[in-house]
């Protein structure tokens, strides 16, 4: 019996090549699986669990799981979407996500994913943590209130920029994003606006100064179309395995606003 390199995603046949993960093959086929810490340009982190699917009946993160021939993958089901919504609600109450005053509103993947999954309320009690800003850098602002610990800036700075400006520190509920400088301030690092790390934040933590509302709220990426219809919001998704992020071509990003 010959084996086909295809699996089914919610009943649709999806081809894959050796080394691809489920989400990579799905994206290449134009299918949307909700995700936050996954970015096609970087090695998967597998931490946000938004991309959880059921593969042959078992829950797994589709950004780290490789498909097998004829695997039956379920993604857009009530059960999984309910769990994804709960994950989102926990992310929202853990930080301070006040969309009306956020420059990233409308271009934010956390917000757009919450719209996509019909999150009408945070459901849980708010933590209201105290997370001071870092406005020390002349061109960039860090608003830690919105950090979801996706580690994309950590991966970009380490793997692409070769700078190690960011890191995740602490464990469990005390995990937080830190800046690699004795003072802990962004101004005391060699971070620059040309860095990949300056352009990968899916939420509103790493913000370019003085351009916040150049594109008005209401005319932004996810105001125009839902995230499921926006092809790869963080960039193109080249087909095939990616072992070396640094060699990948540049890609269009969500409007910097």
């Amino acid at each position: 019996m010959s084996q086909s390199n295809t699996f089914t995603l919610d009943g649709k046949t999806i081809p894959y090549s050796e080394g691809q993960t489920i989400i990579q093959a799905a994206m290449a086929a134009g299918e949307y699986i909700p995700h936050l810490c996954f970015n096609p340009e970087f090695k998967p982190h597998g931490s946000c669990k938004l991309c959880t699917v059921k593969a042959n009946g078992r829950q797994t993160a589709s950004c780290t799981q490789h498909p097998a021939p004829d695997m039956v993958v379920e993604s857009d089901t009530k059960e999984i979407n309910d769990e994804r919504r709960t994950l989102l609600q926990m992310l929202f109450v853990e930080g301070n996500h006040f969309c009306p005053s956020c420059e990233k509103s409308g271009n934010c993947q956390l917000q757009a994913t919450a719209y996509q999954l019909n999150m009408m309320s945070p459901h849980f009690d708010q933590f209201f943590p105290d997370r001071p800003l870092d406005a020390s850098h002349p061109d960039y602002l860090l608003d830690f209130n919105r950090c979801i610990l996706c580690s994309l800036c950590v991966r970009a700075s380490r793997d692409v920029d070769g700078k190690n400006v960011f890191a995740l520190s602490g464990r469990g509920i005390k995990s937080h994003l830190i800046v690699n400088a004795k003072s802990g301030r962004l101004a005391d690092t060699n971070f620059s606006g040309d860095d990949k790390a300056a352009h990968v934040c899916p939420v509103g933590v790493i913000l370019k100064k003085r351009v916040g509302f150049a594109i008005p709220i209401g005319s932004r990426s996810f105001d125009e179309q839902p995230i499921s219809a926006t092809p790869h919001p963080q960039g193109a998704c080249p087909v095939g395995p990616r072992s070396n992020a640094a060699t990948l071509p540049p890609h269009p990003t969500v409007k910097d606003a």
Binding site: F92, P100, S101, S121
Partner: peptide, 18 residues
């Protein structure tokens, strides 16, 4: 029915919470 950001997550007035 909760209407608007403030009823749903505290909104602008909740900026005093820290």
């Amino acid at each position: 029915i909760a209407i608007g950001a403030c009823a749903i997550n505290g909104g602008l007035p909740a900026q005093r919470n820290h």
